[in-house]
Write a protein that binds this DNA or RNA. Structure first.
Length: 210
DNA sequence: GACCAGGCACATC
DNA sequence: GATGTGCATGGT
């Protein structure tokens, strides 16, 4: 398994090259983007983030002070705006109350307890928590998303019943743990998913993994 | 017009 | 523990 997973990475990297993830200017922007992108096309998330940037609101305390209504107006393009406004507020409350909205302060916490803390915030599930850990805080955690699951299933790395943890462990137990590798590998899987492994139009005939 | 997108919480059984 | 459902925009 370790060899197969390594081979997949090599193929993807030589085909697509470096993905330069996460596409954001600051760790805080990664955290907000991680919540906004839940079950949502990234292009829509970019519009929402652009709105926040335009109004200089991409800062913990400012964003937290915003009214629910105003926040929904700004993040509207990202969809699910009512529920996402609520989730953003839950996260910001946690981030400000525990860490004063400071990424460096948050970085001092051990990885497993920080993951637990994030998971306890309403609106943050395993993928969002791990995205924050890996892409905002540079912690060696593998992120599993819908593309990852679909690709692994189609290539028979996993079965239909593969849970988040099971899939994550597949990578974390078989790869040499490292932020750089986990960052690039997941990004490459998303790239592959978008271009060759869509739900109803798989392009398996020309897939670089073929 | 249908389908899809870098999930999650909650209800119900 | 598993399964179903609501949440919503914008691109293809």
């Amino acid at each position: 398994m370790a060899r197969r997973l390594g081979l997949v990475y090599q193929k993807l990297y030589s085909f697509f090259g470096s993905q330069h993830w996460w596409p954001a200017d600051t760790p805080f922007e990664v955290m907000i983007g991680a919540i906004l992108t839940q079950n949502t096309n990234w292009l829509n998330v970019e519009k929402a983030i652009s709105n926040l940037k335009k109004h200089k609101l991409l800062q913990p305390h400012r964003l937290y002070k915003l009214s629910h209504k105003r926040l929904t107006e700004l993040i509207r393009p990202a969809g699910y705006y009512n529920i996402k406004a609520k989730r953003l507020k839950s996260f910001l409350k946690f981030f400000i109350e525990h860490y004063d909205g400071n990424v460096k302060t948050m970085s001092c916490i051990p990885i497993s307890s920080l993951r637990q803390q994030l998971l306890s915030v309403n609106g943050i599930g395993p993928e969002t928590a791990d995205s924050i850990l890996l892409y905002a805080l540079n912690r060696p955690v593998f992120v599993v998303d819908a593309y990852t699951k679909r690709i692994l299933l189609r290539h028979r790395f996993t079965g239909e019943d593969a849970s988040y943890d099971k899939t994550q462990n597949l990578f974390m137990k078989n790869l040499k743990s490292g932020v750089k590798l986990f960052n690039e590998y997941h990004a490459l899987l998303v790239k592959l998913g978008k271009e060759f492994c869509l739900k109803n139009k798989p392009r398996c005939d020309i897939c670089p993994l073929k």
